[in-house]
Design a binder for these strands. Structure first.
Lengths: 253, 253
DNA sequence: CGGGTACTTGAGGACTATCAATTGTCGTGG
DNA sequence: CCACGACAATTGATAGTCCTCAAGTACCCG
């Protein structure tokens, strides 16, 4: 268990009205009422360091977060320490919804990079459902989107070969990252280690390394500066037999 | 693709007021208003045969179902035919929510036994959100529960050994089935073939057979009448290192 | 009886895991 | 500036798991 610091800021660097994410084409327009409610809903911002554990399996968190910046991953552990990464979170994604609804967290979340999170009170979720049916619908939509991603991951781990899996995963993450403008300069830099990939794909670290090496030999991906970059997005999709995620504009809570 | 008949009944054998599921201890109480709205929401009943395809990936279904009786499974296919079973549906479960929210179905659903389904109109979902925040919350809760099950399955396929996976899956299904009173007589009879188990666990049919055989040798499960029965539930849980799903009472839409 | 489906079993080979070591990078302390 | 430890990536060897191929059995149904 890591003990990296979690600092919270009393002040808001990003009031909702000036949310840096909302203008992105990936997100749908919100009307004034909705925006002002979200602004009330937001309790503050939380900055966490790389490696910090944001949420812990088994705990009862009173909060719910939206990623403002940075990357994280969601995972579960077996009693003997085997780890399975379930999905990744990046800007615009909701963290901790499952815990808010079901009471106890059933998975943990760890930051892959420094992150800035918007903090919401779990308690106010009821008010949201009572007074903002549109937002309530959005939250269900977001849960459903997560489910869809899990379905894809399950298909991948269960039925794709190691090489296809790796290709799928990298294409999938890169595709999501591009959707939220994480490709400022060159291709997106995905800040993960091969151990993360191994724990996502259900492979050993050694075999993951050899598999990624094959992708690199084919010039489909590059591994630089402790992270990975896509070399040939379409090549990855084709190898993985993956259609891509037909992402329409989505809500941002 | 199967072409078994799907018959619809104009009449209702089970008006919501006499729903055979609602009295079960697995489900939470609903108030009168909620019940009467659900009764309006319900459009009719649909009877499908074993083997029938209830929903098809890629289609735009106008409906959403709740299982009244029978079993089904949700799956995805790779272009070359490899199949991954994502989860199973049994009485009380919602089918097709993802499709209703996201437009296009991203997975297919096939009946494992004859089924009776309550049919709802996707269109009315908005009215539900507008006027019944409690039910809206319930629907999100249900989506979240599905996500939790997928998380567990992902952990299983990714990090458990073949033997543990099989033990987990059978314990998991049996546990859910018991929750909805499917153990009328003796232990629950799970109406699946070894091919289904193989496609759920990400294993080949042959290896699945050998794995199940080991479970049978240990008297943890029995295979009879083309279905499987639990021989030693706690033994399965222990072998799989699985805690069980702490199921509180849940909503029934 | 023939044909279909589901379950079994054995054998050989492909794919992955484990073990053990090496390399390279980076930040810290001498 | 270099030694040092920590971490990530890499590689080779060996063993084990799992897949594919190929048959064979059992049962049900027309």
């Amino acid at each position: 268990m890591s003990s990296q610091s979690i600092r919270s800021f009393a002040s808001r660097q990003y009031p909702c009205e000036k949310c840096p994410l909302r203008p992105l084409p990936a997100f749908r327009e919100f009307d004034k009422q909705e925006l002002s409610f979200i602004s009330t809903f937001k309790r503050g911002e939380l900055a966490v360091d790389k490696g910090a554990t944001v949420l812990v399996e088994g705990s009862h968190s009173a909060h719910l977060y939206t990623v403002l910046s940075g990357w994280a991953f969601r995972y579960k552990l077996l009693p003997d320490g085997r780890r399975q990464i379930l999905n990744y979170s990046m800007p615009g994604d909701l963290i901790g919804l499952q815990g808010s609804l079901m009471g106890e967290m059933q998975h943990s979340v760890e930051a892959l990079s420094p992150m800035l999170l918007c903090v919401f009170e779990r308690e106010q979720l009821h008010e949201l459902y009572r007074n903002y049916p549109g937002l309530a619908y959005d939250i269900t939509w977001i849960a459903s989107r997560e489910e869809r991603m899990l379905d894809e991951n399950l298909l991948s781990i269960g039925r794709r070969t190691a090489l296809e899996r790796a290709a799928y995963l990298i294409a999938f993450i890169a595709s999501r990252a591009r959707g939220v403008g994480l490709n400022g300069k060159t291709p997106v830099q995905i800040p993960i280690t091969q151990q993360h990939i191994a724990d996502t794909l259900g492979l050993s670290l050694v075999h993951t390394n050899k598999t990624i090496r094959k992708l690199m030999d084919r010039k489909l991906v590059m591994w630089r500066d402790g992270g990975c970059e896509v070399g040939d997005y379409d090549g990855l999709k084709k190898l993985a037999r993956w259609e891509g995620l037909g992402e329409e504009r989505r809500p941002l809570i």
